[in-house]
Amino acid sequence: MMEQEITVTIKDGLHARPAADLVKKLGTVSSAVQLYSGQKEYNPKSIISLMSGTIKEGETIRVVVTGSDEEETMAWLNDFFAGKTS
């Protein structure tokens, strides 16, 4: 299990298009991923879960990744929330 705090620097936060990219990418990884933002917990493999709240630009979230590809997944998530992917 890996746990890390990441500050979201995606411009305008996790809106529809990046949310779609996130779900799509995580659909291809085997690790379980949880995001914690304040009181809320999200399963970022589920678009419905992501639609239930908003993750804003500048916000710091806690990311927990558990599984055989957790290192690559965490690295990708760091890039993703920094707005560096795609």
């Binding site: 529809a16 779609a20 779900v23 799509k24 659909g27 678009i47 639609m51």
Partner: peptide
């Protein structure tokens, strides 16, 4: 609206 949004993203994952 919300259903189509979820469907299109899920479909886009190749599901």
């Amino acid at each position: 609206v919300e259903g189509a949004y979820a469907a299109i993203i899920q479909s886009g994952c190749g599901s």
